[in-house]
Every structure is written in C-alpha cells, then in structure tokens.
C-alpha cells in the first residue's frame, strides 16, 4: 500500500505551489499530510506546506511534476492506502482524503475516527 493522488489533485498542488511562490511565500519542499489529535471524534487531518526538508523517518511520495507528499510514520499507520483528490462542486472546491482506514467522521466532517 502507499499514498496516491489523483491527476487533478497533483495539478492543483502544483498550481497552488507556484501561486505561493509568486506571492513571495517561498518555495515549499513538499506538502505535509498527517493525522493529529483534535476535532470532536479525536483526530483531524494535518494538511500544509512543508518548507523544511523531510526528516529521515518521514515517508516521502513523489508524483508527476515533482509534487512531493511527506508523511510522518505514526500518521502513516492511519493514512496508508489514502488517495488525495481535488473536488469542485456546488459547495466550492478543495482537497479530499479518500481514506480507507476511517470508521466514520463526525457530523460536521471536520474530524475522523479510526
């Protein structure tokens, strides 16, 4: 198993990365995803730019066009098999984790259960 990303998600990450660069916020090394405590059912996703290089323990996934995802080993237990997708819909647009490990999410969807 590993972590995958849809072509739409990859394209969007690239676009946002270039946009961030053009705004002078620096060139990210990659994108860090993870799980941490928080939210009402215990866990929430971490999803942010990584300005620092990955640590040796991190898992690194590289996609087309140099898009990289960093995952810390603890989070990886919960994220293994996840597909990162980008969705546009009536409610706006954003990224979505299709994570086979979740048992459910809370009503508002801000947090996840394993």
């Amino acid at each position: 198993m590993s972590i995958t990303a849809t072509p739409k998600a990859i394209a969007e990450v690239k676009r946002l990365s270039q946009k961030r660069e053009s705004e002078g916020k620096g060139t990210p090394q990659g994108l860090r995803i993870g799980i941490r405590g928080g939210g009402c059912t215990g866990f929430a996703y971490l999803f942010e730019w990584a300005d620092a290089a990955p640590s040796s323990a991190d898992k690194v996934f590289e996609f087309d066009g140099g898009v990289k995802l960093f995952v810390d080993p603890k989070s990886y237990v919960f994220l293994d098999g996840t597909e990162l997708d980008f969705v546009t819909s009536i409610m706006g647009y954003g990224f979505k984790f299709n994570n086979p490990n979740t048992k459910g999410s809370c009503g508002c969807g801000e947090s996840v259960q394993f």
């Binding site: 009402c40 929430a44 009503g107 947090s111």
Partner: peptide, 22 residues
Amino acid sequence: MSLLQIAEPGESPVKAACKGRV
C-alpha cells in the same frame, strides 16, 4: 466531510468543538 485547503506550515486549523448537522 468538508473539503480541505492547504495551510501554511504549522497553521492547519484545529476545530475545537463539533458542529451539529444542518
């Protein structure tokens, strides 16, 4: 679940309380 946006390093939002459904 709600859609996510990429946060700046260290700024991933934490939701304190759960909202009910509407």
